[in-house]
Nucleic acid binder design. Sequence first.
DNA 1: CCCGAAAAGTAGTCATGACAACTCTCCGGG
DNA 2: CCCGGAGAGTTGTCATGACTACTTTTCGGG
Lengths: 260, 260
Amino acid sequence: MTENAPLHVQLYDEMIHRIRTGVWQPGDRVPSEKSLVAEFGTSRGPVRQALSTLRSEGMISGGRGAPPRVQRTAPAQSFDTFMSFTEWAHELGLEPGQRVIEAGRRPATEDIARELQVLPESPVVEIIRVRYLDEKPAMLERSLFPFDVGRPLLSADLDGGSLYATLCSLGIVPVRARHVIDAIAAHPLEVEQLRVAPGAPLLRVRRIAYDEHGAIIETADDRYLPSMASFVVENSSERRTPLARQAAGATAELFDAPSR
Amino acid sequence: MTENAPLHVQLYDEMIHRIRTGVWQPGDRVPSEKSLVAEFGTSRGPVRQALSTLRSEGMISGGRGAPPRVQRTAPAQSFDTFMSFTEWAHELGLEPGQRVIEAGRRPATEDIARELQVLPESPVVEIIRVRYLDEKPAMLERSLFPFDVGRPLLSADLDGGSLYATLCSLGIVPVRARHVIDAIAAHPLEVEQLRVAPGAPLLRVRRIAYDEHGAIIETADDRYLPSMASFVVENSSERRTPLARQAAGATAELFDAPSR
DNA sequence: CCCGAAAAGTAGTCATGACAACTCTCCGGG
DNA sequence: CCCGGAGAGTTGTCATGACTACTTTTCGGG
């Protein structure tokens, strides 16, 4: 599997395997770098790099001279799992479902054009879906794609699988995303589709996804039933998580001029 | 300032300064490692370490052989800024305000005991405050501390400054925290204090803060007016952000047995 | 003029060696 | 029995050197 992967990745895999299987218990001290070096037969570099990766995920902690300890922490989800509702559901052992409310192309309004970084009036693809977990409605998703990106989606099997997977198989791969999280009252569409009372609180996640070149692939507005999903972030003074609390009004700014 | 800080930190500071002042423009290619090494007169190690830190914050991107580019990204907030409402407000240039609703000690219920990892019936300190930004209510904060941690807070100047700053000055320093974000309807207390309609959507952030030893310092339940604040997270496939979407019901699990 | 192959340049990876800063353990004095 | 200090152990930091994988540029042939 990781046969010809870089050494430090192999070491990382081995270490995280030991943590998950309990060979290294939470609270335990991790073996010293010296002993790890001896065990794996590498130099100190890759070992430190692997440990550094673990630390950046909050799996271990420790400082100068202090023996690092395994932390009990929420496992950081892979990018794929976080981006794809379908993959997330599968990881939970639940059956993802969906119903397409709307799927079509239309000219971009000024707001949409600014968000997607396209010219006003240029065509965009809009897809609105209700997402289910084991038959129960969980989220209302409204996605917007530039026309080039979204066109193949319209002819794809919308009811079948994951839009995310479809895009990836077409060579359109998101590698970066920004999520703005807040709360909002349920509007008529959500009332109907999510079966909640008018004005009920929903967890809103607005997302912008970029490809490897920094071009915008998608903007989305996901509205979750708080009874079905929530979000977890870990934070520490050692490592700076790309996480910020922002004042209202600053939101618009975030949708401005990203790179290239 | 950073006179005797480690080299790679000095380099990081210099680089981020160049990004902020626009010397390195978003979309620009960052100077090559070789030229940076030549300019700063160090070896490649510290330069790479500084670049690696920038990358982990999403400030730059790039791969093998590819020239790294500066990304337009939400600046990652420091741990302090994210944890302290007071500091956050100051950074925004707004005047933080507060009003204490309740402050006292009481015996831990079973739920609270489990969250704080203390024995049931053992005393805990509870502080409930309304927080203001420029006189406008922004958030209702309910904090729970183990008695040892919270006792000095009761005699401190509650109306004056930041609890967070007070704790730090006492040598009780949070270094790690976990935040669970969801939405909730406004209850009577929020209706009264935040001046919203009953049932209005609020953004709820439940937080557990740990000290350097992994002991729990605080659990908190913050309820923001979505019109006043939101949260931003960045995400990429290269670096794994400690971020996860979780199903309801899994929440309780997160408040379980952390390390030591 | 266009396209493809070679060359140059860049970042990723790894090894080795060394010193500094800090923590933990252990032991002896009070 | 408690406390403090010395020493051992561990991690953080930095330098140097080398090779690999990939991208960008250049240049020559068609």
